[in-house]
Simulated scan of single mutants.
Amino acid sequence: MPNKLNKTTVKLANITQLPKSAKKRAYRDACGMAHGLELLGDRWALFVVRELMLGPRRFGDLRADLPGISANVLTQRLSELETSGVVVRSKLPPPASVQVYGLTEWGYEAEPIVQELGRWATRSPAHDPTLPISGVSILLSFRTMIDRHRIGSLELTIGFRFGEDEYSASVDRSGIHVERCAAAGDIIFSGRPSALAAFVYGGASLDALADEGVLVLHGDSALAARFADLFVLPPKFDPVAIRP
């Protein structure tokens, strides 16, 4: 009997002693920022939160918009975020009847973190805006980068179609408001999120993007140009300017 107990004890010890890389990061610091990094600082965690900011999504949808993440890592991050109270699992009613992941009320409160980190990082000279971007990410960037002084009396509705994902947005004096629903509006963009970013932030021609088959506008091109003019990226930081 003692030998059997000893073998069982050793086996349990081996299971519970995870490799350092599998353990949650703990800074042992009372600062709220430290605990925030314990919650969202692991690789891909903040990306998952970002992708849920416009509503619940299926596991496969998350993987499709985060092509660099493996299924195992995504499963681990969702589990950790669920345990910490940031993410909640639910099941859509029939006929869909599929499991989705969404943010809790507290989870949605992380949007300013995503916004301000993005705003700050776009000032980096090393930031490459030509890299791939998800539909949720480009729409969140609009909520971040819109210049309310440029809106004036403009009231506009915009639809977005990115593959099977559709969104509608409205612009008024208070900013831009986006929801996941059938794309509808005064103008509708259909195509790749990266192409929409090239038009809004990079000044790419709508005609050229349409010729490439990456972005199609349905509606008045003048309204589309007015829409694009609402968004301004912050100036790049110039490290040379601070050298003595």
Rank of each mutant, 00 (worst) to 15 (best):
I187V: 07
V214A: 08
A241W: 10
L37Y: 07
L206E: 06
P112H: 05
I146M: 08
L103H: 00
H127C: 12
T8C: 11
V114Y: 01
T144Q: 09
L54N: 05
D61V: 06
P19W: 06
L117Q: 08
S170W: 10
S124N: 11
G102D: 05
T157P: 04
G36M: 09
Y108K: 10
T122M: 12
P67C: 06
L215F: 03
A204Q: 10
F160G: 00
S170D: 09
D211A: 15
A204R: 10
V232P: 04
D65P: 01
L140Q: 03
G41D: 00
S190M: 06
E179M: 14
P234L: 11
E164T: 15
L81Q: 04
V171D: 05
S21E: 14
E82W: 05
F231W: 07
I176G: 02
S205C: 10
Q17G: 08
P234V: 09
K4F: 13
L74H: 03
K24F: 08
G55Q: 05
L206W: 06
L12F: 15
F237V: 13
P93N: 04
E164N: 14
L5H: 12
Y201G: 04
E105N: 09
D186P: 02
Y167S: 00
D186F: 01
L223S: 06
A184T: 11
